[in-house]
Amino acid sequence: MREEDIIDALDGIDDELISEADEARKQKNKKSGRVIKSLTAIAAVLAVAVIGVYAVAVIRSDGGTDGTNSSDGLSDGYSDNEHPIPTTGAVNDGNDGNRGEMLDLMSVTLKVTGWYDGGSCFMGRVTDSLDSEKLSKGMYIQVNFGDTVFLETKSNGNKIQLENDPTETMIPVGSEITVRYSVLIPPPPIANGAADNLTPTRGDHYVLFADTLVLDNAPELERSHTHSAAAVPQNVDDPFVGYCGNSMTTVYFPDGKVTFMAHLALTEILHNLDYDADKLCRCLPEYTVDTEFGKDYGINLTAGYARYNGGQADLTAEQIDDMLAVIEWAKDQPRDIA
């Protein structure tokens, strides 16, 4: 076989594949640029598109730590399962395209103090003191985003994401950035001064700090909230059946995403649920899922609900089991190279 045979053979591949690539070529980059390089203090605006419910974090108006730098100092008054809600302004700043239309996005302005390169993600530390060791390497920008906030650049409903790859982004220290988010995950339980554990733990408390945060119209704290599995499927009147085995699904995990064909339970269930805006709560989804029919489904299989396009639907026990089986299988799969 000659390499030219492959070139020729590509003429005969499925039209669907060619169309998919052709569409992608015509779209502008979804991620606006890969690199922001500037050695001057410029005001960079990063639109953060995050899937999920409302952010829940406590904003400290003093713009700094309480001196503890650990999550323990932030748990006053809240139980392990309660998530304080940020007091921030600019709610419903829906200028972020489709996601802005779907979600209430919080907006904060932050002052960049340093950057920790964790590979595909980076951590923020809420302190005005600079990490001199890392900054001395000249490549680190740290966002004083919270006590410790797990950040990723890839779409993940449970995390704040930046539009640009942070490993290629050099946001000057001292810059002001505006970050829009709807979900914050709790910070990982890390030791003071170290960032060894990058796996966030549900129920951890987290805090959003800002030096230049606009505090306005603090949302009410939701102190108690329970879920229960639906007795019957909460589907649309005319559910679609008969999905193609080539239907692609993507599940996002903290350490990357997994895309696969077949294993259609997620697609079938999520596509047919009747999402109700009145049921929308502020609990955090556990996973974000993309299917052929929609992106950024938020699912919580512990609480038993799915969220999409500004609405929410409870899952039956059977649906939870079916979806959990797929999630558990996907967890063992290698992560996509992103």
Binding site: D11, I18, E20, A21, A24, T259
Partner: peptide
Amino acid sequence: IKLLAESISRFLYTQPRDRRVLFLMRY
């Protein structure tokens, strides 16, 4: 070539969307 095209299609469908799009953009 036709069999090869079908085989390449099968291969591409096993790949994540982003990767196969990149592959087709290039080749």
